[in-house]
Design a protein around this nucleic acid. Structure first.
Lengths: 354, 354
DNA sequence: ATAGAATTTTGGAACGATCCAAAATGGGAG
DNA sequence: CTCCCATTTTGGATCGTTCCAAAATTCTAT
């Protein structure tokens, strides 16, 4: 017979508590508590007896009760702007993994870019007495409002979307450097009219990436032509719209640096539908390196944000804050590295149908 | 000056509790508790005074403390097999939304299809005294093992992956019916050699979808040719591999019913790279209707699992269990409806480049 | 055998809410 | 002015843990 985890009182009405365990092991509840916390104080023999009792009774630790006494719980809030964006889904999975491994329990909230929802969610997290939060602020989040909604003494790290003027540490990729590399790559391939498409001026991430685009052009002694910045929603459809606007204008660009991979996918699709072969007639680069990027038609040249690692960094950064390390030292701009595939033409294989 | 939420004791060392509020409002903590729970018993004037005190002190409700006395908390576990699969990301967002609206707080766990991780996560959820869980079991989860890891008296609903023999209610789309519709559509378009690609026999979802495929063929008086079932991982690359195997075999199929959209995307891409125009030379249908499906090249004909609604159903089903309704009556197979786009050829526009 | 030190164990007070029976208050009828 | 009843309010026990000072036990050296 396999060892069944059910103990003799597994079907009791109430929960099996530390007191029940203590009674069965013939010790006091304090001793059981000591065993639970892995204390060195308790004698080996006693430890064994207590563990046996816990097994027999099917005891389950009650974290809520424990954290009532401690200052904070093992809960950590994860507030994401848009879970349906694969990039954020990957980031979420990364953070979840890292937190769980460190003994924290992530509570998830998806704001769908809704700042009202975000405010509600922040309050709920406070009510749960979370040890801290990792937040990717919804678009349109105001630095001041966030400061009002989240007391500065509770650990929080901001990820992926920098809040200017906020005292909270920021963890995210180096957008400017990444975009600069991407655009320089296009310049090296001979492109001179390089558009930037997607997002708009109100998004810090867009501003950082545009800055990188400008840097690269200026670095090559070229003036950045602001009319080549196309502000469209950071969506697939946004990519399509930008392509249409760009192509229908005078002197269409020969290369497109996209706000992110989603926009780039929309753009490549729109180009393909016009019969333009991406990677031969025109170059496209994305940003983020989501899983789908390499399966796009054609596979996207993009800038990797090292999503998984970023998630780990976030978890670690928050842990640092919880341990009361200096917030300033925690801000972190991860590397962002160019991944060359086919959409830029550098490795174009000339396969005929794109 | 805008009304600052900071009260006079917002920077106290400890937390502001109902006792502090009670003191300031000149009432007992019981009264404050009554106000908190929205009781009708308390006089209007007192209610006002208490609310004023809460505002002034910046009181934040402590859900953990409250749930210590109640049988269970407002936490609900969400256990997902693979968050990186856009389908599950959408489902997760849907469930999260529905739970939050009903006043529950979802705690998230991504098992990455790892049953060891899943067991750990289940335990963590128990320790958090969750009101219930919504679980999409990791591949390879054994019904008996799950029953051991999750006591039957704690509400749980299984979603998307039926566990045969489990007493827990199952909520998911009608896979068999959906696949039958899809394959019938292919039959109507004149296809006779229709392959089923992706997943394998150990996955209940695959078995259900294969059953639908078989139903459709048999319904048209055709024998289901088992050699047309290609068992490959339910991934993009799996789709590619299946296409290669199928095309290199004798008498290649003219249509492919795919386990899900991811496989279908891998398949369409592999076909395109071989110069085969999907929607003209060959037909492909997917399953799930993830957001990317309509942006695929060509847009995928697929079966919608009504993901968002499914998420809502899960939340509602769990709520029913928490309210101690009959588990059997909660099982639910949602509709699964065919969405015709271009990959099957029914609406092929003949655009040249696919 | 015994003081003193070292090692183990323990009872009771927290933590911040809810719940219940009982007490206080207010109003209307006699 | 009292009594009764309806409306409000309240103290204290409780949920399951941790923490702390103090008690009990064991060990060591004399």
């Amino acid at each position: 017979m396999p060892s069944a985890p059910k103990g003799d009182s597994a079907d009791r009405v109430g929960r099996v508590t530390i007191v029940d365990v203590a009674r069965r092991a013939g010790v006091s509840k304090s001793t059981v508590s000591l065993v639970l916390s892995g204390s060195e104080l308790v004698a080996e023999a006693t430890k064994l007896r207590v563990n046996e009792a816990m097994g027999a009774l099917g005891y389950v630790y009650h974290r809520g009760a424990a954290s009532l006494r401690a200052a904070s719980s093992d809960l950590v809030g994860m507030i994401m702007g848009d879970l349906n964006n694969p990039f954020f889904a990957e980031l979420t999975a990364g953070i979840e993994d890292a937190l769980f491994q460190r003994g924290f329990t992530p509570i998830l909230a998806n704001t769908s870019e809704d700042i009202v929802r975000q405010a509600q969610v922040l309050r709920a997290m406070r009510e749960h007495n979370v040890a801290g939060i990792i937040i990717s602020p919804a678009r349109g989040t105001d630095t001041w409002a966030l400061a009002q909604q989240w007391p500065s003494h509770i650990p929080a790290v901001i990820t992926m979307r920098r809040m200017i003027g906020s005292s909270l540490p920021y963890i995210g990729p180096d957008n400017q450097k990444g975009e600069r590399d991407a655009v320089e790559h296009l310049l090296k391939l001979g492109h001179r009219r390089i558009a930037f498409i997607g997002g708009d001026d109100s998004m810090t991430t867009q501003r950082e990436r545009v800055a990188g685009w400008r840097d690269a052009l200026n670095g090559w002694g070229l003036a950045a032509d602001e009319s080549l910045i196309f502000e469209v929603p950071p969506t697939r459809d946004g990519g399509r719209v930008a392509i249409e606007r760009a192509l229908d204008g005078p002197q269409p660009p020969t290369a497109f640096a996209c706000y992110n991979d989603i926009v780039a996918m929309g753009a490549t699709r729109a180009l393909a539908l016009r019969g333009i072969v991406v990677g031969r007639d025109v170059a496209v680069v994305g940003f983020d390196d989501i899983a789908d990027a390499e399966h796009n038609a054609p596979p996207l040249t993009t800038v990797s944000a090292h999503t998984r690692e970023m998630g780990m960094r976030c978890a670690e950064g928050l842990l640092g804050l919880i341990r009361r390390e200096d917030p300033a030292s925690l801000s972190f701009a991860g590397d962002a590295s160019l991944i060359v595939r086919e959409s830029c033409g550098a490795r174009f294989q000339g396969r005929g149908v794109s």
